[in-house]
């Protein structure tokens, strides 16, 4: 039984090299909360790039879409597809061996240390009868070093700053060795330094990522593919230069936009019309 829990042995570097595995798509998603339709026939193509940014104004359905993509929310109609198969056919444990999720939800009063939390990333692969193996511990250590939280490993999560906490959560996701990492507004409430540090970490990951991102400039700089949501549907998907056009942003966000090129990346400044 224990053997069934183990995934094929592969190094952290190999995770993204699985070719087509871990690709999410959505077809005609509809979802309403208490009479308000949040998603309206949303269709998302499998991502082409490494880092897919989901952008859109408040209420456009970004977080709702993300919830559907990892099975936390079940659409009223339509289908989420994982590697071409309906997501609902996968058990939660099977999904966990493919996808890792980082959301902004806070835990409660019971506080684990950073290391304990990061090690939990191995839990989908370890039989409940067994302790973590040396390899599990090595993977957790590697992830904590990669995200720069190794020296915080004995600190309680509740004692961390926002940026530290975010990096610890990403370390847990990396320890899971997923094919894809989903992140919900990972730069929320972070100062500018940490916003860029976190986005660098995400875009530099050897994993494919889908990031819900509030900040268009961060998305334009760090994502190699962008999805723009508007009123519960996808109105554009593609490389940043092709998608983030002035006219589109002005319409979706109801602002005036000026485009700049900074270090080769498209950036915007905004004012009200």
């Amino acid at each position: 039984m224990a053997a069934d829990h183990r995934e094929p042995d592969r190094s952290q570097a190999g995770a993204a090299a699985d070719g087509g595995a871990g690709l999410l798509a959505a077809k005609d998603l509809d979802l309403a909360f208490g009479g308000t339709r949040v998603l309206r026939g949303l269709t998302l193509s499998p991502q082409q790039g490494r880092t897919l940014g989901i952008v859109g104004p408040n209420g456009s359905g970004k977080s709702t879409l993300l919830g559907c993509l990892f099975g936390a929310l079940r659409p009223d109609a339509g289908e989420v597809l994982l590697d071409g198969e309906p997501l609902r056919r996968f058990s939660q444990a099977e999904i966990a061996r493919r996808l890792a999720v980082v959301t902004q939800q806070q835990g409660g009063d019971i506080d684990l240390t950073v290391q304990e939390m990061v090690l939990l990333g191995r839990s989908p692969f370890v039989s409940p009868w067994r302790a973590y193996s040396a390899r599990d511990r090595a993977l957790a250590q590697e992830a904590m070093e990669h995200t720069g939280v190794a020296q915080l490993r004995h600190r309680l999560l509740g004692e961390l700053s926002g940026g530290e906490r975010q990096r610890a959560l990403i370390a847990r996701a990396l320890t899971q060795q997923p094919q894809l990492i989903l992140l919900d507004e990972p730069t929320n409430h972070l100062d500018i330094h940490y916003q860029h540090a976190i986005m660098t970490l995400i875009s530099g990951a050897r994993h494919r990522c889908i990031v819900v991102c509030h900040d268009l400039n961060l998305a334009a700089r760090y994502c190699d593919e962008i999805v723009v949501l508007h009123q519960g549907g996808v109105i554009a998907q593609g490389p940043p230069d092709a998608v983030l056009r002035r006219a589109l942003i002005e319409e979706v966000y109801r602002v005036r936009v000026r485009e700049h090129h900074v270090d080769g990346a498209l950036q915007f400044s905004f004012r009200l019309p």
């Binding site: 999904i95 966990a96 899971q176």
Partner: peptide, 10 residues
Amino acid sequence: LGDDASRSLG
């Protein structure tokens, strides 16, 4: 850790 985190962990 939270419901989302548990879901992420299967």
